[in-house]
Design a protein around this nucleic acid. Structure first.
Lengths: 341, 341
DNA sequence: TTGTAAGCGTTATCAC
DNA sequence: GTGATAACGCTTACAA
């Protein structure tokens, strides 16, 4: 049975209060007392009970990270950075997967507030902004939206400029001389914002270049998996007038597309150029290596954790929007031939 | 301010005890009472404070999953399955990364017991068995070892038969006629067990086939990353008598090796056959697709969670070793030419 | 079947 | 500077 404050107090012949002060590194404690208490602490191998402390202070020191799927490389790399950034500030991270389930997203948000197993939520949602607003009144726990979402005005928010990122990617395909540029990742029947913004950027680039847009060149993808990318690319290649470039809304979709093009007996980038978004490690070693838009996840994670901790410390702190930088990374899949890691 | 049990009790004009009974779904409560309480609960939107409940019962409903790096596909896929399996049994999962840091592993294990932020630890360690034994006396919290470790006898343990898996992989390379079979992943200066067991299996297969072993054909890898695999394979290809097959101790190493062979102007599997272990999704779409040994992570996760929950419910339950099945998956990198997902 | 009250191990508010 | 002591919100003997 672990020793308690009282045990230590009895042993050192002081009051509980004094022990607590010493343990919590509190202000004014005489050196003599401190030493006496320290010794008792060591002898009993006392460790404070975080639960009791939490019940008293209302702080758990735990952050929740909510993502659709932790095994998607973008999210696992983000989780890695979030856990590290949180540790830096003395927090631990609990991970929940929503599995593309709106109901579960809502439950985590609305149910989570009272249970208080964590001090704040870092939420990488699929849910639309309207739904977030709707559930807002129930939620009082500090919340930071993270990833790629339109700024809402009611929540802290860390993201890249999605429209611009998509535009940059598409523009790069235009710059290397492609004219029949397809896109994979639109989700017409869902109200997610990220895909819509990326579609906007894609269309904007095409329009600015005077290239006509063609609805048949835009393939939806439900889960942004390799399999989805493979499937969509295969359909695109079967088109009478097949594309000479594909912009994928995520690197994972691009990995599937890469393989589909190979299986169709075509070459990347000669026949079809490919670009993605995320800059996952996998794309640095694929054949060919993948051109992409890099997202700076360490920065996103660090900013998000900093924001949530600030809000935990002061719930009234002003809501902020952090726009993370993005950068075009050109690799073999759009023309460069050297292997660059 | 969230409503408490007392608030509900006052409102419904009953005692705290009765409210608690209703909320906890306790045995005998009259229908009238139940209804009266339910209504008050709804009106005040009461949700039990898990922290207080925890302080009282000593259960947090949280499991810790400790892995070296969450962004390594094997671990993120494992995490996905663990989170799902845990949710099934009413537990949530907190994830910690040790980052290959022995000191941090030890701290998590020894420091974790008294802090009680979780009910049990699922530990996928790098640390050697000896070190685990050494820290054992300090640790009283339920612990399940998970992944690929030698059975210890003091801890529950879920893993594949590593020696056998490595042997099967190597045997497959022998079966397709390869004779100069290299290995990537040994860690001679560390006391990790998984690599050693895999080396044993590798050597056993070679010996059984009457193929001589050659120390220069065994390349170490410190982090099992794509970059490590790339580096090691590059060195192997520079050997005067280069290998015609490479057994990689993880799929991620294999992905790096695949690229290295391509960059060296050689072909897989014609010049060099490649096989890994883990069966990560990436290997189903790579060029070529990757032959591997599949590990059944859902099974491992489900068994591990079941074991830890059993031990939480009864600390005296007998220690068990669960050997998860593994299966050879043959894809293009060792000869098959069709794309199989 | 329901009410009363005693903790769980801290922190924080008083006094001294 | 230190010592009692009251919460924090809940579960659970023990009574009624």
């Amino acid at each position: 049975m672990p020793a308690t404050l009282k045990d230590v107090a009895d042993r050192a012949n002081v009051s509980i209060r004094t022990v607590s002060n010493v343990v919590s590194g509190y202000a004014h404690v005489s050196e003599k007392m401190r030493r006496r208490v320290k010794q008792a602490v060591d002898e009993l191998d006392y460790r404070p009970n975080l639960l009791a402390r939490t019940l008293r202070t209302g702080r758990t020191g735990v952050l929740a990270l909510v993502v659709p799927e932790i095994d998607v490389p973008y999210f696992s790399e983000l989780a890695r950075d979030v856990i590290n950034a949180a540790a830096e500030l003395g927090y631990r991270v609990m991970i929940d997967q929503t599995g593309h389930d709106h109901a579960r997203e809502r439950e985590l948000l609305t149910g989570g507030d009272r249970t208080m197993l964590f001090d704040g939520i870092l939420f990488s949602p699929l849910v639309t902004r309207a739904e977030l607003l709707e559930m807002a009144p129930h939620s009082t726990i500090p919340l930071v939206l993270l990833g790629e979402h339109e700024f809402d005005g009611r929540y802290d928010h860390v993201a890249i400029d999605n429209l611009r990122a998509a535009q940059d990617a598409t523009q790069h395909l235009i710059d290397i001389g492609r004219t029949r540029i397809a896109a994979i990742g639109e989700q017409p029947f869902e109200s997610y914002e990220t895909p819509h913004l990326r579609t906007e950027g894609y269309l904007a680039a095409l329009n600015a270049a005077g290239i006509g847009t063609d609805p048949t060149m835009m393939k939806p993808a439900t889960h942004y998996s390799r399999a989805d990318g493979y499937q969509a690319a295969t359909e695109l290649l079967a088109l009478p007038d097949r594309p000479d470039a594909i912009f994928c809304y995520s690197d994972l979709l691009a990995m599937g597309a890469l393989r589909a093009i190979f299986d169709a007996g075509l070459s990347v980038p000669e026949d079809v150029a490919i670009i993605g978004i995320d800059d996952i490690d996998e794309g640095k070693f694929s054949r060919p290596t993948l051109s992409t838009v890099s997202l700076d996840t360490p920065f996103i994670a660090q900013q998000a954790v900093a924001r949530i901790v600030a809000r935990i410390d002061d719930p009234e702190v002003a809501v902020e929007e952090v726009v993370a930088p993005h950068a075009l990374i050109v690799r073999e899949s759009t023309g460069s031939s050297a292997h660059s890691a």
